[in-house]
């Protein structure tokens, strides 16, 4: 599966602060009633963005100034809770292409990597700086560079981090690992053959 390499993401930012933003908040359960991921973008953060009667709330994702943003600046333990891949899918389909946060829940991180949406971490201090810059200037162009592991914006540069296995996969366009997993079929059967609970196939 040849995929486009993702050496960097360049675009404007959008900031959603707060700790422990869970996947129920990113995509409420009622929107999981679907047999494909299409159309999830509009439901991203739905209950934070809309009142019960459907009128929009004051939320950065409803704010015209941040329309078209591709870089989400988040907080600590972003994406915790349910394993639903609908969460990163909804953010991706909303138009976001990367997340910069202090830390992530693991399943959210791996789901995001698998779909080619890098999730990098930055220190709390540096996130504050970035957040302030984004809010002060919604048109500010941010470059997330996965080769040099830094985020550049205006005159500033902040270091970011991401596990090497994920970084390598993203910059080489190998983040969908299915092709490699399909390769060694004999190896899979051989391992299965050592395990009595595996039905002999």
């Amino acid at each position: 599966m040849a995929l486009a390499p993702i050496p960097s993401v360049i675009g404007t930012g959008l900031s959603i602060p707060g700790a422990d933003i869970d996947t129920d908040e990113i995509i409420p359960a009622r929107f999981l009633k679907c047999v494909t991921f299409d159309g999830l973008g509009e439901a991203a953060f739905y209950d934070s963005r809309y009142e019960e009667d459907g009128s929009p709330k004051d939320h950065p994702m409803n704010d015209e100034r941040f329309a078209g943003a591709s870089i989400l600046v988040a907080g600590i333990n972003f994406g915790c809770g349910s394993s639903r891949e609908h969460a990163p899918q909804a953010l991706y389909r909303f138009g976001l292409r990367t997340v910069i946060a202090e830390s992530y829940a693991e399943i959210f991180f791996s789901n995001s990597t698998n779909l080619g949406m890098p999730c990098v971490t930055a220190s709390g201090e540096n996130l504050k700086t970035l957040r302030a810059a984004v809010n002060a200037n919604p048109d500010l162009v941010i470059t997330l560079d996965l080769e040099t592991l830094e985020a550049r914006f205006g005159e500033q540069v902040i270091p970011v981090a991401i596990p090497e296995s994920a970084r390598g996969a993203l910059v080489q366009g190998r983040y969908d690992q299915l092709a490699e997993l399909l390769e060694d079929e004999d190896g899979v059967h051989a391992t299965a053959a050592t395990l009595p609970y595996f039905a002999k196939a």
């Binding site: 490699e180 190896g187 395990l195």
Partner: peptide, 29 residues
């Protein structure tokens, strides 16, 4: 160890999964 198939190019393990449970919400896609 008992379920390791091999090491992948990115350093991760290809891990054999013995039992896979599925339900209606996360499997159709």
């Amino acid at each position: 160890e008992a379920h390791t198939v091999r090491t992948l190019s990115n350093g991760q393990t290809q891990l054999l999964i013995g039992t896979h449970l599925i339900h209606e919400v996360t499997s159709p896609q």
